[in-house]
Design a protein around this nucleic acid. Structure first.
Lengths: 209, 209
DNA sequence: CCGCGGCTAGTCAAACTTGATTAATTGGAC
DNA sequence: GTCCAATTAATCAAGTTTGACTAGCCGCGG
């Protein structure tokens, strides 16, 4: 599964109850359509799929409020809540490429208590370091052959560079969190999160930009 | 399209003529199953799809050589050759996340003349710098509001970091190419590329690792 | 007052991906 | 000799993603 389930669960969760179009708008507000596969089709599909799997509860709502076809509102079930945190932790922990999952995880990181977030990120750094070592081990010529891989060695260099860069960024975030940045779970009210109802989306595809 | 078409076209091209299993083995030899969606199903699907689209020519071959069901060999058509270079240039040029495409592009970079490869990479650096500037512009509070984005600003920091890191790596590769590293297109025979026929794949999933 | 462009909300077919499974043949154990 | 396991090669069904499309309603220009 890509980042879509995490994004959709997180968006619904922040509203308490939301219909597809609201989710779609929030994701656009966060810029998610630029760094993830948050297309309408994927969002509605994820909503239906997760409702079928018992992660979301669906409510049919009268087709009135503002025009358009009848809509369905969703809200997280207990299982959905669990799955949300499972996906969130995984997104922050896993060092695999998938930039969209990490980005989504960062976007929801304040839903975790500070201590847990820091712990996850530290484990992320450790995983990155181990992965780096493994890449080097795997792609280094076993004995005398110095340059046997030719330009293929560039792939290794690229991965090593990515691992180092990712670890450096993660360490920076850890420091900021340890320094008390942001309002985490259980520390009071959050500030900016979703588009307040009724406010037009300032980032809704306006052509230029 | 993900990296799969580029990988498959490149693999078939290096053999001149190849069947699905050969392609699959090559990709595994390059470690592609670890950083791309190079699963058997995707590979065979891509071969058939591209044959249908006229990028590959299919030849049915007697089911003899080494056991297994009858196999089909493929070879690039003129259109396939064109598409290969189009995808290769795009992979090196585009700065979008998609790590697998860039990795595949690096793997085939020696199919380009040295001057063109360097030019593409320089344009890549320029694109990354422009993208970085745009991210900063887009996510910086317009006027007095200093920290309006809260932790969402972390997403911006992450992107900026990625852009800088990607640009640094690209500059390194440019330097190596300008220094004469590797044998590029039109500069003589290449060294390591595909698994020679008959040699067992030393990286074929051996369970542990 | 009527049509048309735009917004709200969602659906659908076609393409792609995944993981398991099938199928043909060879080689070794017994 | 023959039966089991491994290897070679490819297919399939189920699920996901994509991009284009449908459809209701509002407001405004003519």
């Amino acid at each position: 599964m890509s980042a879509i389930r995490l994004l959709v669960l997180g968006a619904v969760r922040q509203h308490g109850r939301a219909h597809g179009y609201q989710v779609r708008n929030d994701l656009e507000f966060w810029g998610a359509h630029e760094w993830s596969n948050a297309k309408p089709g994927s969002i509605y599909h994820a909503l239906k799929q997760m409702a079928k799997q018992g992660l979301l509860r669906a409510h049919d709502v009268a087709p009135s409020t503002a025009g358009g076809p009848p809509r369905t509102e969703y809200e997280l079930t207990g299982a959905g809540e669990e799955e949300y945190f499972r996906l969130l932790r995984e997104a922050l922990l896993r060092h695999d490429q998938k930039i969209d999952e990490l980005t989504a995880g960062v976007g929801f990181i304040v839903d975790l208590p500070r201590a847990e977030a820091i712990d996850l990120l530290k484990r992320r750094v450790a995983a990155l370091e181990e992965w780096r070592a493994e890449v080097v081990r795997h792609w280094t010529p076993p004995d005398g052959t110095p340059d046997a891989w030719g330009h293929i060695g560039e792939i290794m260099k690229f991965w090593v560079h990515s691992a180092d860069s990712g670890a450096a960024w993660t360490r920076g975030l850890i420091e900021r969190l340890e320094g008390g940045a942001y309002v985490m779970a259980g520390e009071g009210e959050r500030s900016v999160e979703v588009l307040p109802e009724g406010v037009p989306n300032p980032y809704a595809a306006p052509g230029a930009d």
